[in-house]
């Protein structure tokens, strides 16, 4: 009896309806493919904030197209009355809830991620211990490319209960930290001043952002953290290397001694 009722809510799918459906799906797929090709390419040509805006448009436009295609297709498949909708969605929900729970959860999380934007293309995020740049926010997964050039596909459902850290949150501001470990016997004010100038004189530094030198006393010496922002988040590793190379060279030339590894290991 129930089967008959469910079957009754569907329209007759004749050739013209199928053609119409195929047309809608085809156009939607074509639009999504074009958006997924053109916007990332355009984003790659741009820099600064504009790059993030353009890349963030991809999942949003795709969602709009999917919803639009669904709304256009629905009246072709069923008579869109409240009763029919409740019956269809209830049945679908029951089926999907058992069979494709995680898949559907990821799809819904993908919609939530588009609205809440915990990550966008171009962001540097860490999920489940994986750090990298978001290259694509798909319907079900987010793609991250790590600094060692490994591509990770992470399902959106992680946003429900995993800690997600976003280093730049849709902006070109991404703080980079370079660590220096010095022997305790030195003038901290001079070391701090030198490290400040190391960051200020870097070719990568974003001048409009603050530069900070934080130091912390440890049993084995002093731990310095030089915090600054590169012009482009993609430069963060080169920027850190540059700070370390030049910082070490200047500190050595000024007679500073670095903390001994044996001391640090013993104290830990």
């Amino acid at each position: 009896m129930e089967d008959v009722k469910i079957a009754d809510i569907f329209n007759t799918l004749d050739a013209s309806v199928l053609l119409h459906l195929a047309f809608i799906v085809g156009i939607a797929v074509l639009c999504i493919m074009l958006i997924q090709k053109i916007l990332p390419w355009l984003g790659g040509q741009l820099h600064d904030q504009r790059r993030h805006y353009v890349l963030a448009l991809v999942p949003l436009l795709r969602l709009v197209i999917v919803v639009g295609a669904f709304l256009l297709s629905l009246p072709l498949i069923i008579e869109p009355s409240l009763q029919n909708m409740v019956a269809l969605l209830g049945t679908l929900g029951l089926a999907l809830g058992f069979a494709l729970k995680d898949y559907v959860s990821s799809l819904i999380a993908g919609i939530v991620a588009t609205a809440e934007r915990p990550y966008r293309s171009g962001d540097w995020i860490e999920i489940d211990g994986v750090y990298g740049e978001v290259t694509h926010v798909g319907l079900r997964t987010v793609q991250i490319i790590s600094p060692d050039d490994t591509l990770y596909h992470i399902p959106h459902l992680k946003i429900w209960n995993e800690l997600i850290s976003n280093a730049n949150n849709g902006t070109p501001r991404l703080q980079t930290v370079a660590d220096f470990y010095l022997d305790s016997c030195h003038d901290g004010a001079i070391a701090r001043h030198i490290l400040y100038d190391v960051a200020l004189s870097s070719a990568y530094v974003a001048h409009r952002e603050p530069i900070q030198v934080i130091l912390e006393e440890k049993p084995w010496g002093t731990h310095y953290q030089l915090k600054a922002y590169p012009v482009d988040p993609q430069q963060q590793f080169r920027f850190r290397s540059d700070l370390n190379i030049r910082g070490r060279a200047v500190l050595v030339s000024q007679g500073f001694k670095f903390a001994s590894a044996a001391w640090a290991t013993a104290s830990e």
Binding site: I194, D197, V198, S201, A203, R246, G247, A249, V250, S253
Partner: peptide, 8 residues
């Protein structure tokens, strides 16, 4: 000189 020792 934009160098760590070139600003003082």
């Amino acid at each position: 000189l934009r160098h760590a020792e070139g600003l003082e």
